[in-house]
Every structure is written in C-alpha cells, then in structure tokens.
C-alpha cells in the first residue's frame, strides 16, 4: 500500500515539478536538498509506502530486484522517529513543486511513481524537471526529454543529449510514467565519475554544476551556491 498525507493544499496555478532522488553519486538528492534548504518551500505532503525499505536489498538502492525486497522499518535520529517517505514542497515564486524522492523495492517502484503523479495531477503539474547523474560521456550536463521539442529547447541552454540506455529507479519512473500521463518534462543528467565501491557516494561538485544549469532554465539565482555549507 502507498498513501499520501497532505499537510496543506495551497491554491496553485501550474507549478513545475522538480524531482531529485538518491541515485548515482547522489547528484539528484544533493540538488533537491540544496533547493529545499535554499528556498525554504512549504512541506505540503508526504508519501509513505509499505514498499519503502530502510535498508535496500540491492546496491545501489535504485536497482531493485524482486528477490531482494530489503528491510522495512524506521529510523531514529536524536530520539526522533522518521519513516521512509517522499516529500513534496511548494514554492510560490517561482512556482515549483519540489519532490524529494525515495526508492521503493521492486514491488513498489511503479506504484510509488504512479502515486507521485496523482499528487502532481492534484496540483496541476504540467511540466517537470528531473535531476540525476550519469556515469559516462563527455558533457558536463546532458539531457533527455519526453519529446523532441523539449530537447530542442534545451539546446538554447547549451544542453545536448548524450545519455542513452536505462534510467533506473524513482526519478526514471516518475519521468517515464509522467510522459504517459501527458506531463512534459526534461531530465538533466550531471556527469560524474562512478564509484563502484559506493555508487551513491556524494559528488557535490557535479551537483553544483547541475544546479547552475537548472538556475538558467528556471531563471532563478543560485549563484552563491556553497554546497558544502548549505548541505
């Protein structure tokens, strides 16, 4: 079962969803956490799922497999309890729905992505930007999109396509299933060096490069990025 708890239901126009989740060198996670910290948006909803393990059965966490469902549970931090979740934050200006994702196990990956898209539909999301990492190629940031028109649009920001192949996990499925529901979007991939010993070891430098490209697209100022201190 996957369910959403709403804390607030703001009057929205047409927010752009920004999606980031744990993944290759944690680039998407770092980027979304930075945006949340920087702009202090309102937490409006949380998504919970019985398919969210606290300890994933696979390494990296996004490569889910039916035989390795992981370990369910909760975390305790400074005597406070935390349950695995996806968080939705609303920012009024620019109007964004920031989504901090989490990887479900194999049984829940599609279910969770669909529930996220239900939230997007509720808040009239028509466009999304997904933030992630990629481990090959030459470009600093490359992109994928739900249609060719958006790929051409990205060229204006000096972002070309390069990533070809499988895009795993929460962000990939929200992106792909979003297309099926008519939500147009782009995915920005920051190029990083894979770390086989710890695939999700944070790459702050690349997350920063990725955020600079995002700031150009959204026309927002995040020039004073100091990720080490912000995160």
């Amino acid at each position: 079962m996957t369910w959403v708890k709403y804390f607030e239901e703001p009057l929205v126009k047409e927010p752009i969803a920004i999606v980031g989740s744990p993944g290759l060198r944690s680039i998407g996670k770092l980027a979304i956490e930075f945006l949340i910290k920087k702009f202090q948006p309102k937490l409006i909803a949380e998504l919970y799922s019985e398919h969210f393990p606290i300890q994933h059965g696979t390494i990296p966490s996004y490569v889910a497999h039916p035989d390795y469902p992981g370990q369910a549970g909760v975390w305790i931090h400074e005597s406070q309890i935390t349950i695995p979740k996806v968080e939705f934050y609303y920012l009024k200006d620019p109007e964004l729905l920031l989504t901090k994702g989490y990887h479900a196990n194999f049984q829940g990956q599609y279910e969770v992505a669909k529930k996220v898209l239900d939230v997007y539909e509720k808040f009239n999301v028509k466009r999304m930007i997904v933030l992630a990492g990629y481990g090959i190629g030459n470009k600093d940031v490359c992109c994928a999109a739900t249609d060719i028109k958006l790929i051409k649009e990205m060229k204006k920001y000096g972002i070309e396509t390069e990533y070809e192949g499988a895009f795993y996990g929460f962000s990939g499925l929200v992106f792909g299933l979003g297309k099926l529901r008519g939500i147009k979007g782009v995915c920005l991939f920051g190029r990083t060096q894979p770390n086989p010993e710890d695939p999700e070891y944070p790459d702050l430098k690349v997350a920063k490069i990725l955020l600079k490209k995002l700031s150009a697209i959204l026309n927002i100022s995040i020039e004073d990025i100091n990720m080490n201190s912000e995160l």
């Binding site: 990956q109 790929i151 990533y163 070809e164 499988a166 795993y168 990939g172 299933l177």
Partner: peptide
Amino acid sequence: YSPSFPPYVLISKDGVVEL
C-alpha cells in the same frame, strides 16, 4: 505497461524517454 516490468525507463539515442 506492467508494474512487473523492470523498474527503469529507456532513453533513446535522440534523448526521448520511453517506458
């Protein structure tokens, strides 16, 4: 489209995402 398919999408050569 099935939730029993592997949990990833495909990015084609031209950069378009496909389930």
